[in-house]
């Protein structure tokens, strides 16, 4: 399958890239790893007159802790996240998720920036960023601005990014002590999107009760779904079998998946409940609770 014809641009700097996007408006699209965009162009589900490849712009590929944040450059490949000692030891929610994204060959090309900026509710990292309370840094003609992940997703493939803005960095607050995170995903096979998946990040207080929590679901609606009520319910409570079961039930009630070959609505909601419970349990264990 051949994509419809387009012009390809390879700017050397972010400013140049923003200028190109500004001059072509919604006829242009940012090309990062291309693992979602190129298949869509090939299937002719989308077409753009201009692709602006940010893959050669220096300084967009890094994973570092700085000023209380984990900062990840938008062009950081999934494979780099997978191999990162920092991610593997300190950000287990991401370490859980990355090996479950697509397959190893796709992860050699696909980027974190592309995964979160694409606005596909089937992508895994948006829900994780909601759970982590991440902020997305975007560069546009007027300079840089930050958008909390919670305000980023507007609809199916629709985000807070203007057509001439480029997501440049993902900023994740470093978790305080007694924190734990986990991602639980059910998929039919390697390379498939989630039937259902749950991202959990929580912090326990000195007595083992939940001090704060966030729960978000993948492929549970037109955008990643934050289950704020379920998370709020947990705060102040001991995360035992009973409270985890109730929070999972509340989270699943927030999901509104559609039926497809991955299953019926009922099945997907039930799986959202089961996976939320699993992620909660793992996150609690990782936070040092029981």
């Amino acid at each position: 399958m051949i994509p419809a014809a387009f012009d390809y641009h390879r700017p050397g700097t972010l400013d140049e890239a923003v200028k190109l996007l500004s001059s072509h408006g919604d006829k242009a699209k940012v090309l990062s790893g291309g693992m979602s965009l190129l298949p869509m162009l090939k299937l002719r589900l989308a077409s753009f007159a201009h692709l602006v490849d940010i893959g050669r712009i220096p300084g967009l590929d890094y994973i570092k802790e700085e000023g209380g944040f984990l900062k990840i450059g938008a062009m950081t490949r999934q494979a780099a996240l997978e191999r990162s000692e920092l991610v593997r030891t300190r950000y287990l929610i991401l370490a859980d998720a990355v090996p479950l994204i697509a397959d190893p060959l796709v992860r050699n090309r696909g980027t974190l920036g592309g995964n979160v900026a694409n606005g596909d509710p089937g992508n895994d990292q948006p829900a994780i960023m909601l759970a982590l309370g991440a902020t997305f840094v975007a560069r546009g003609p007027k300079g840089e601005r930050s958008v909390p992940a919670g305000q980023f997703y507007k609809g199916l493939y629709s985000t807070a990014l203007a057509p001439n803005e480029i997501l440049t960095e993902v900023r994740i607050p470093a978790p305080p002590p007694r924190s734990g995170g986990a991602y639980a995903k059910l998929k039919r096979k390697t390379g498939d999107f989630a039937v259902a998946a749950a991202a959990v990040q929580l912090t326990l207080d000195g007595k083992g009760a939940v001090e704060r929590a966030a729960i978000a679901l993948t492929n549970a609606g037109l955008t990643p779904v934050e289950a704020a009520d379920a998370a709020k319910y947990l705060v102040g409570k001991k995360p035992d079998e009973k409270t985890i079961a109730e929070a999972s039930r509340m989270a699943a009630a927030k999901s509104s998946p559609s039926a497809d070959r991955r299953g019926s609505v009922e099945y997907k909601k039930e799986m959202a409940r089961v996976l939320t419970a699993r992620a909660l349990l793992k996150a609690v264990q990782r936070a040092g609770g029981k």
């Binding site: 390809y8 693992m35 090939k42 893959g55 060959l105 796709v106 090309r109």
Partner: peptide
């Protein structure tokens, strides 16, 4: 150095 699926990479990339 990395194995990739060449049906999903542009030649120009």
């Amino acid at each position: 150095g990395n194995p990739v699926k060449s049906c999903t990479v542009l030649a120009v990339q």
